[in-house]
Design a protein around this nucleic acid. Structure first.
Length: 803
RNA sequence: GGGCGCGUAGCUCAGCGGGAGAGCACUCGCUUCACACGCGAGGGGUCGCUGGUUCGAUCCCAGCCGCGCCCACCA
């Protein structure tokens, strides 16, 4: 068979992707009695496309899945999508806007239909892109957080929490995004530094004895002021506590109160209290029974009980009007520029408006406790371990979760109200009010936070709330791999939900992988246009090279994208291809260990040792070292040493048979990271009975392990001699290896002197250390002994050079 | 404001108490019959700075100087 000298991944990769899937090799079966290995893919947004994070994470998960599949586990990699409430609704709303209409014109029912249509046409492309990466998900099991079964799971979860008494409805201050037109959770708020003006305004005292000055960045909210607060220990103001002041513009009389939350060092030390539009003020207001006035509406415009000229203004316009009023009434002390962090909506980038609003909340305290216990006892482990503490810190100070969203796309709350004000929580639509029998029920308009349903992913995808064979077989899973920013939003909540509903952790290990930054060190982003599309990488270098490169550059911390790593992967695939060609061109042969010459025993021992190291790397989720190790094994050990040494004897069938056996082992080790090129080569090897993807992993042989160390010492020595160009005499089997490596340098001489100098320096350093009594006395005995041995070896080497 | 992490060869990163490493890039030599996406040989680093602990510090501790991330109610 004619094989090109340049490995071309295109065509080859697609062919194997189709074959593997068509032959059902990705499939997991609940009836398969072997031990299970389960990963549920973090469900990507149904509207999204594959980005670098997905590609890295896909490479990580697939490497683990393929390893375990070969190791004989009943392996399930669960695929699927998240309905991504806000993003998806925003995408469809944008399209409607372009068509000159809106969701309000369509109405809720038509709008939701429209979203489904949009998704059928444009959504759900990522699973195809995962296939292109070679990811061996069990695609037939694809789930969606809005499919019928999943909706049932979400309803059950909500009702469960309601019956537990953890869900409640309350008027509290929330983060309102006037662009998305919904509340968002604290975790979805991003703080960005903003240049604002700090306005100092004088509030006259009711008793006419002067005024008190406050500082604010939001003058418009003065209209909603209901008090002035000072720190009880602030002597400048103690005499004012209990008195009254007059709010500018609206001329409202408000009390001056004392509260420890006021920082005397900020501004003037006096705080205007606006419970309707500020989170701290809200807390202060609740504690002092203050009214919660609203002057900014859900559309971001001025509203409520305010002077008519303010009605409908934007906040900025109202700010200016208030400042002008202050100026006109000589109550503006000063304005100064002020830079501070302001919350913005993570998705739309809009400045968050803190608003008081009636929302559903979930108290998380009781659910957090078992999750804390699971992490503290190590039943769930984050990798790298520093993330255990990050998760614990958050769980230990967990706050109520605002679970309702004012959207139409999502899981509508299973809550109905009757005219008498009774609340019915039910998985299915009730016929009548359970308390008063009223039949005119109205369902709560809100939908649930997207992450509410994501929390159920590890078991809702397996059929929960039904007791299915899949659920019994594949829960709990083993690993979950994700990006750092998802630890609280998703990981913590899956652990809590799993422990609450399934009474067991959803997985044992959580991998927090690198964020791959752009080459300039900033985050890849659409607006910066510094992103790299993984599909372009696959098109250019192949999926194997892309997978290898991403794993090679990954780390426990953020890394800059390295095109070199991808190229390294491409070279590795090519090298492997050509090494295989060398053997295949030698003609037919069996695949069998026939010979046991020294170099053959050596490569088999190297492969076995690398297998053990690779298993350790992967068990520690250290993919970068795993990749590096495989590169070294292929290039240095297999090609440069082993193949070079047997080349002259390749015409012997026994030599080829043994070489095929070694190659076979090498391919197995590489397959989890570079599945396509290895499967392709495998298919060309003689007598293939099975696909590589399901071929059994290498057993630990321990073969020739004892010889390995001695041989490697010999190699090292050989390298030194080669460097110095000196021929040496060896006997027996070792001679062949030595002859392979100990060639005279070009002029037959080499720089013996340089090597002597190097050794002399080492000897001097070592002697000095051993002469140091404190070293010999204080250092660990094995360290001292090691140093003695090194010294002996240096001396021996110097002798061998013939000084 | 609190916490975490990072500053090691030109670049991207390993190493984290006892001889400074890898890949790429660079220099030199090889159209050797698997691969020039190759082979061989090299050059290149006061391991951010300053102190401390130690027989010994790139590695541990403290303080600075840079860079990044997370959390947080300073209006």
């Amino acid at each position: 068979m004619e094989l090109e000298s340049l490995y071309r991944p295109h065509g080859v990769e697609e062919r194997w992707q189709r074959t593997w899937e068509d032959e059902g090799l990705y499939r997991a079966d609940a009836d398969d009695p072997r031990p299970t290995y389960v990963i549920a893919v973090p469900p990507p947004n149904v509207t999204g496309a594959l980005h670098m994070g997905h590609a890295l994470n896909g490479s990580i998960q697939d490497a683990l899945i393929r390893l375990h599949r070969m190791q004989g586990y009943n392996t399930l990699w669960q695929p699927g999508y998240d309905h991504a409430g806000i993003s998806t609704q925003a995408v469809v709303e944008r399209e409607l806007r372009e068509q000159g209409t809106s969701r309000f014109e369509l109405g809720r029912e038509k709008f939701v239909e429209r979203v489904w249509e949009w998704l059928h046409e444009y959504g759900g492309i990522i699973m195809g892109q995962f296939r292109r990466l070679g990811c061996s998900l069990d695609y037939e099991r694809e789930r969606f957080t809005m499919d019928d079964g999943y909706v049932r799971a979400v309803m059950r979860f909500f009702v469960h929490l309601y019956e537990r008494g953890w869900l409640y409805r309350d008027n509290r201050i929330i983060n309102w995004c006037s662009d998305c037109r919904t509340s968002i959770s604290d975790l979805e708020v991003e703080y960005i530094d903003v240049d604002d003006a700090l306005t100092y305004a004088r509030y006259p005292l009711m008793n006419g004895e002067g005024s008190v000055t406050i500082a604010t960045v939001r003058p418009a909210t003065i209209l909603a002021d209901v008090a002035i607060a000072v720190n009880p220990d602030d002597e400048r103001y103690t005499h004012l506590i209990g008195k009254e002041a007059i709010v500018p513009v609206v001329e409202r009389r408000v009390p001056i109160i004392a509260d420890e939350r006021v920082d005397p060092s900020f501004g003037t030390g006096a705080l205007k209290v606006t419970p309707g539009h500020d989170p701290i003020d809200f807390e202060i207001g609740r504690d002092h029974n203050l009214p919660e006035l609203t002057v900014i509406g859900f559309d971001g415009r001025m509203t409520g009980d305010i002077p008519p000229e303010y009605d409908g203004l934007t906040e900025d316009e109202a700010d200016e009007l208030v400042v002008q009023w202050l100026r006109d009434h000589d109550q503006l002390e000063k304005r100064e520029s002020y830079r501070h962090a302001v919350g913005h909506c993570e998705r739309s980038g809009t400045r968050i408006q803190p608003l008081v609003s009636l929302q559903w909340w979930c108290d998380m305290k009781e659910m957090a406790a078992p999750a804390i216990e699971a992490i503290e006892t190590g039943r769930v482990r984050f990798h790298p371990p520093v993330q255990n503490r990050v998760a614990l810190d958050w769980l230990k100070s967990i706050r109520p979760w605002n679970v309702s969203r004012q959207l139409w796309w999502g899981h509508q709350l299973p809550i109905w109200y009757c005219p008498d004000g009774h609340v019915i929580c039910s998985e299915t639509e009730p016929d009548a009010c359970t308390e008063c029998g009223s039949r005119t029920l109205t369902r709560d308009e809100d939908v649930l936070d997207t992450w509410f349903s994501s929390a159920l992913w590890p078991f809702a995808t397996l059929g929960w709330p039904d007791d299915t064979p899949d659920l019994r077989r594949f829960y709990p899973g083993d690993v979950n791999s994700t990006a750092r920013e998802i630890i609280f939003l998703w990981e913590a909540r899956m652990i809590m939900a799993g422990l609450e509903l399934m009474r067991d952790i959803p997985f044992r290990d959580v991998i927090i992988h690198s964020t791959i930054l752009a080459a300039d060190g900033r985050r890849m982003s659409k607006s910066l246009r510094n992103g790299i599309d993984p599909i372009d990488l696959i098109d250019e270098h192949g999926a194997d090279a892309t997978r290898y490169g991403l794993l090679r550059m990954s780390s426990t911390q953020d890394v800059r994208f390295s095109a070199q790593s991808i190229e390294e992967g491409r070279r590795l695939a090519n090298k492997l291809w050509n090494a295989s060609r060398l053997l295949l061109m030698g003609g037919e042969a069996d695949v069998e260990l026939r010979q046991s010459s020294l170099e053959e025993r050596w490569i088999l021992a190297r492969i076995d040792a690398t297998r053990a190291e690779l298993e350790r790397d992967l068990a520690a989720f250290d993919f970068a070292h795993a990749a590096e190790r495989l590169y070294h094994l292929t290039f240095d050990d297999f090609c440069d040493w082993y193949l070079e040494s047997i080349k002259p004897r390749l015409s012997e069938p026994d030599v080829r048979a043994t070489a095929f056996a070694a190659l076979e082992r090498l391919l197995k080790l590489l397959h989890p990271i570079m599945p396509h090129v290895t499967e392709e080569i495998w298919s060309h090897l003689p007598n293939r009975e099975t696909r590589l993807i399901v071929a059994p992993w290498l057993e630990s042989t321990g073969e020739f392990a004892a010889e390995l160390n001695a041989l490697e010492d010999a190699q090292t020595a050989a390298r030194i001699y080669r460097r110095s160009g000196v021929r040496i005499n060896v006997s027996g089997d070792a001679k062949r290896i030595f002859e392979a490596v100990v060639r005279p340098t070009e002029n037959g001489q080499g720089d013996v002197e340089a090597e002597r100098t190097r050794l002399a320096k080492e000897i001097q350093r070592s002697e000095k250390m051993l002469a140091n009594e404190k070293f010999v006395a204080n250092a660990a005995p094995d360290v001292v002994e090691g140093e003695r041995q090194k010294l002996a070896q240096f001396r021996a080497e110097l002798d061998a050079l013939g000084n």
